[in-house]
Amino acid sequence: MLELKLVKESLFLNVLEAILDLVAVASVSCSSTGLKLQAMDAKGVAFISLLIPAKEFQFYHCDKDLSMGIAIGDMVEAIRSADKDGTITIKASDENFRNITVSIESPECNETTSFSLLLVTLKRFCIPELQGLLKKYDACVQMPSVDFMRICKYLSNVDGDVDISTIDKGIRFFALGKCGCLNVKYMQPEKATDIDISVQAPVSLTLDLKYMNSFAKVSALSNQVKLCLSKGQPLVVQCKIGQKTKSRIIYLLAPKIKG
């Protein structure tokens, strides 16, 4: 049996809101240690992995490992209408493992709304251990998420693809669209401690800009974001969720390759 409780204004729900423009259904696995969500967009270009340890929830109980396909779009839609200070409880039982029950309790505890959400069948993916994957990357950029968001906003003025390349002591974002081009150089400053650009080998990736903008939205939930690039490999965008939590979200974005 699984039971987890969270307040409506929790980061978990904000994150679900933020990933909804990419995915509507997700594979959610729960164990005694926490919750793991994995999802891929309809075109198979972007992959999202979200990890939230059990202690981040107001209440968390899972006595048996569970894996479920959840229409998170429908779930968020239902929760949106709840009072902002309301408490949300999500339950799944072993006896009837075809749906989950989501209950919303008002702050005064005088009103409870419950709805049952049918689980969906999802194809599961085998993604290698992400931390191991990150160690192999040619270049990593740790930067304040406000910088990342600002760069993505600049880039969104050009409709097309973005090339992210390593340059001497930094990286370069270059977008070429119908109306012109845009070039952003992001360098390692001498004194800043919240920027760390490490380049093991030169690398350049071409990526679809619209996904970058979706990633920027989620990075708003964190102070820092980390981009990892490797030749011919998906871009990895990683950020912790919130300030003092061990929750984290990782995006993989498949590059454009010579056809």
């Binding site: 891929m40 075109k43 198979g44 270009v45 972007a46 992959f47 194809k123 599961r124 993916f125 085998c126 993604i127 290698p128 693809d161 071409t206 679809d208 490999q233 998906p234 993989l252 498949a254 590059p255 454009k256 390759i257 010579k258 056809g259």
Partner: peptide
């Protein structure tokens, strides 16, 4: 031209 690759090009479906 370049074409969009997919995540499954890099990771095997379980």
């Amino acid at each position: 031209g370049r074409k969009q690759s997919t995540i499954t090009n890099f990771f095997v479906r379980a």
